[in-house]
């Protein structure tokens, strides 16, 4: 089962490598990983998209929690939450027909064309994992995809629940 783990940790050199090292050392999966400073500069927030059964997930959260740099860990998928990912897709846009079609699909998905070249369009899109995957798949039916950059998932709990130090 796919899970989104949210981690609040010290913004220290080496802290990220401890998380990544733990996942490989204990043979846990990482589907995607996002990390950045929070509003409080001494803290970082990591979102990891992973998969495993309940037993594996229990170990993942416990093991991550055990790391000295880690302040809090939450499995976002346990409760109502919001997930977002951003993707940048560079496609071939050789003729009017393709250009129109790329623009139309982007509009439907509420994406933006953020760069235009002689023969290329670059589209930006945000959404959850499914939306982004289907966008890429539909786009690939219409034209040749040159490059895809996905940010990986970030997530936040709905309502008042928050991960704070």
């Amino acid at each position: 089962m796919r899970r989104i783990i949210s981690i609040l940790l010290e913004n220290e050199p080496g802290a990220l490598s401890r998380i990544v090292g733990l996942f490989s050392q204990r043979a846990f999966n990482i589907e995607s990983l996002c990390v950045a400073e929070t509003d409080e500069p001494s803290l970082s927030r990591i979102t990891i998209s992973t998969f495993g059964d309940d037993k594996v997930l229990e170990q993942i959260t416990k093991q991550v929690n055990k790391l000295v740099d880690v302040i809090k860990v939450a499995d976002l998928t346990e409760r109502p939450h919001i997930e977002r990912e951003i993707v940048l897709v560079k496609v071939l846009a050789m003729n009017n027909k393709t250009r129109t079609e790329v623009m139309r699909i982007s509009d439907i998905f509420r994406g933006d064309i953020i760069d235009v070249g002689k023969q290329i369009y670059t589209v930006q899109l945000t959404g959850d994992e499914d939306k982004i995957s289907s966008f890429i798949s539909i786009l690939s039916n219409e034209t040749e995809i040159i490059e895809v950059v996905r940010s990986g998932t970030v997530g936040i709990a709905r309502g008042e629940k928050a991960l704070r130090a």
Binding site: G14, S17, R18, G21, L22, Q25, V68, D69
Partner: peptide, 11 residues
């Protein structure tokens, strides 16, 4: 620190 990371409590 890198070499010993998986076998320390902290570094």
């Amino acid at each position: 620190v890198g070499c010993s990371r998986p076998i320390v409590k902290h570094s």
